[in-house]
Amino acid sequence: MKLDSARIAQELDQARQRLNRLSRASASLRPLRSPATPRRAIWRCDTATLYHYGADGAGDAPPLLVVYSLINRPDILDFSPQRSMLGSLRAAGIDVYLLDWGRPGPSHRYMSLEDYIDGLLYDAVAEIRRRSGGPISLLGVCQGGTMALCYAALYPEQVAKLVTVVTPVDFHAGNASMYHLAKYVDFDRFAAAYGTIPAGVLNVAYVGLKPFRIVAQRYVDMLEFATSPDALAEFMRMEQWMYDSPDQAGAAFREFAQHFYQNNDLIHGRFTIAGRPVRLDRLELPIFNIYANDDHLVPVPSARALGKHVASRDYREAEVAGGHLAVFVTRRAHTHLYPAVAEWLCS
């Protein structure tokens, strides 16, 4: 069985020509605007900044605080005017705030989950409540969703509604590849050795989950659309975001890996903050849980486990087609999902 040799040569030649065209197309690229939606920094503490995006029109919904993961930067929530979760919610009349955790440095190696959740998040919520005078809603993304769940369980009187987006809840459910990676790592020694965990170490772990897709497939595919300036600009935004991860505060990283990934303490009611148990079964507030049906980082059963562990009588779910990032980048999410979230928040 053989392939036509001349055809192979022609195909490879085309690939090289595409590479050259990519070179020419990139020469005309201008700096990309980021963030896409206007915002104002209204509060800063340590590494964290609280941004206010405001609202288009005067909606009745409580202000919404978006809590992102510690692992990556929240820029993906506001990539471009066409692909902006924050912009979509704002346009739908929601008064949007974003807590940007910033970038921990060597002096933050002992920052714990308590410092993040009962410290920075608590203070950011207090700042918004000082301005609005009432409860707020929380929207947590990925690890930020887990942190928002912890916060709502600790301070139910402060949170009106909760939206969780691609949020792990049962860390051992489904094809739990992250749990498998973390299972036998001694995180006490790991965090002691590194202090602040370098972003590069985590990037290797994440790329290592899908090396053929992320390393080979991505760039072969890219060559096929690289002559379109818009598509190339989108790709570059994603490229920058993927490798622009902050280092991790050692203590918080160790606690998250041990309590959540290794011991699955959240669903068993064993996780505590400042000596207070985080009990999901006491969460009675309205919850909107969004997950992606092909998410290799947060498998569907991990995200959907939330419904089984909370006491909320107003619990709903939405499934997005695609992987972990589909929730942020697909057109359908922006045309259908976020308007629905906004409507739910206003109801």
Partner: peptide, 15 residues
């Protein structure tokens, strides 16, 4: 970013 992108694209074409 472009430098990395070219590096990866070149590697993909080489592969």
């Amino acid at each position: 970013i472009l430098e990395r992108l070219f590096r990866e694209a070149q590697r993909a074409v080489a592969d």
